[in-house]
Design a binder for these strands. Structure first.
Lengths: 339, 339
DNA sequence: GTGAAAGCGCTAACAA
DNA sequence: TTGTTAGCGCTTTCAC
């Protein structure tokens, strides 16, 4: 059986409280007592029982990370970043996946499954602006993504509009004028799709180009297959185009595949830009020009904000914070400025 | 403040034990009492405190999953499968990543960080056969992968040798004779690399082809970049070859990129086969022929075995089980049988 | 600087 | 069928 505080106290000939003080690095302990206790801990290979500590203190040292799906590269890489960041703070990460399903996302917020976390980093893909009230919960939450703004919790998000605008401008600088957009969503005014579409439109408008609806292709999901299908449709519709902006890298990569199948050369015939800068984007042929949306920074900020909320637990919560992260245009082979 | 068993008991006018019985679906409770308690639970929005339950019962309902890295597609997809499987059993998953570092892998087994898990599913990439003793711990562990055999814990693994043999045979059936192997490891006799290399050799030998050492290329990591680099070396060494077997899909995909850069056509000039069947393999150009190693089944078995060990907690542990999972050859465009 | 004792919310003997 | 009670191992007042 594992040793308890009591055992250590007995062996060291002190009270249980003193041991607790040593374990928690309490300052007011005589040096000689401290070493004696340390020895006893060593000897018994004592390890604090986290359940007991958590019951007593109300903290578990576990944070929850709620994501659509780990096998989507973007989220896999985000999870890695969050775990690494959490570890720096001595926290451990419990991951729940929702499959981008709104009901499941809401369920996570109310179910007892995440009870033993001290707080949640939450990346919804099914919930929308109208669901903001679901975040009025009595534990700390940091919201990620661009589906809900002005909610009652801290929010870390990327500069979608500006970044999409920059991506589109890269294609314009490559001398392209007929830029297809792959991955738009019907009737949405929030969410990555809507914001990035807005950036695309702004860039075109600023360049004096009218947005041609036949170039805007809609997909429900953002997987490779959807990108490939969108391009096949575009081609079979006989729409002329000289560039593709995929609203994420998977769409862009799927698009590349379909373009190449059709015998089109990238970037000679068609330039392609993606969004996310997943690892894979470096190793395709041609390599994919894309937007690095600041994933690492998002993870770091999310953990820090959450930790701050957890620490302040007691007091009246301060205003929710909205934090924007810097992005970067990554120029590779699939789209290069003409100059 | 959250409601406790006491509050519910008071409201329902019963004892705390009765409430506990209802919450835990204990059979011997009068129907009328049960409904009364249910109402009280509803009214107070009572949710059991998991820390307390865990302290008392010794179970947390959390299982740990220890992986090298979530951003490697194979592990991202494995994590998804484990989480889905765990959920079926009402369990939640805590993920720790080791970065394939031996010391960190060993640390996870001893540190208190995973204390509040009921058991671990462990996928090492740094530890080797000699580290088997580190698994002699007093909590349930299910080992994944092919680095440690005959250890003191249950083990779920794929048929690496047979699957690699089948992959190589696919290339032979495509009429290839000069098959390059990408991703071998120096001086290893366990681990995916060694086992898959053995399958490759067996297939060649069975076909009466001698293994040409100049066709066997070594890489430390199994990322896309390593595959690409290996092929560039192969080409600059002037070694003739008509097929590539990448020991995982990332290597195969990186290889494809380098081959295409060099103006070689796939599968016309060079056939390529990978291993893992990650999602991406369907959407590259050409799509990648590969081995599906039974990831879903591995996840399901791992969770089941772990759960069984957790349940038997008390008794003397039975012999560790070694479970092999079925694989499947997935023929796509990059390598097709000649007939 | 150290000790005694209460109790976090729950489960599980045992009693009734 | 239901109630009483004793802790699980820890943190935390409050004394000393």
């Amino acid at each position: 059986m594992a040793a308890t505080l009591h055992d250590v106290a007995n062996l060291a000939g002190v009270s249980i409280k003193t041991v607790s003080n040593v374990v928690n690095d309490y300052p007011h302990v005589k040096e000689s007592t401290r070493t004696r206790v340390r020895q006893a801990i060593e000897e018994l290979n004592y390890q604090p029982n986290l359940s007991a500590r958590s019951l007593r203190s109300g903290r578990s040292g576990v944070i929850g990370l709620v994501l659509p799906e780990l096998s989507l590269s973007y989220f896999g890489e985000l999870a890695d970043a969050v775990i690494a960041e959490a570890e720096k703070h001595g926290l451990v990460v419990l991951i729940e996946k929702t499959g981008a399903d709104r009901d499941r996302e809401i369920a996570v917020l109310t179910s007892p499954r995440m009870q033993l976390t001290d707080g949640l980093i939450f990346s919804p893909l099914g919930m929308g602006q109208a669901d903001a009230r679901h975040f009025e919960v009595d534990f700390p939450v940091v919201l990620l993504g661009e589906r809900i703004f002005g909610g009652p919790v801290d929010h870390v998000t990327m500069r979608n509009v500006e970044a999409a605008q920059a991506a589109t401008e890269l294609l314009l600088k490559a001398g392209r004028r007929r830029i297809a957009l792959v991955g738009a969503h019907v009737d949405e005014d929030v969410g990555s799709a809507a914001l990035r579409t807005r950036g695309y439109e702004q860039a075109l408008t600023a360049a004096g180009i009218e947005v041609d609806p036949s170039l805007v292709r809609y997909t429900t999901l953002w997987h490779r297959s959807n990108g490939a299908a969108a391009i096949r449709d575009l081609l079979s519709d006989g729409v002329e185009f000289d560039a593709v902006f995929g609203l994420n890298d998977a769409l862009a990569l799927g698009s590349m595949r379909a373009l190449q199948e059709a015998g089109l050369r990238i970037p000679d015939d068609v330039s392609v830009v993606g969004f996310d800068d997943i690892d894979e984007a470096q190793y395709t042929l041609p390599s994919l020009s894309t937007i690095n949306p600041g994933r690492e920074q998002i993870a770091a900020l999310a953990v820090e904000l959450l930790l701050a909320r957890i620490r302040d637990g007691g007091g009246r919560p301060s205003e929710p914070r909205e934090v924007l992260v810097d992005f970067e245009v990554v120029v590779r082979e699939s789209a290069v400025p003409a100059d």
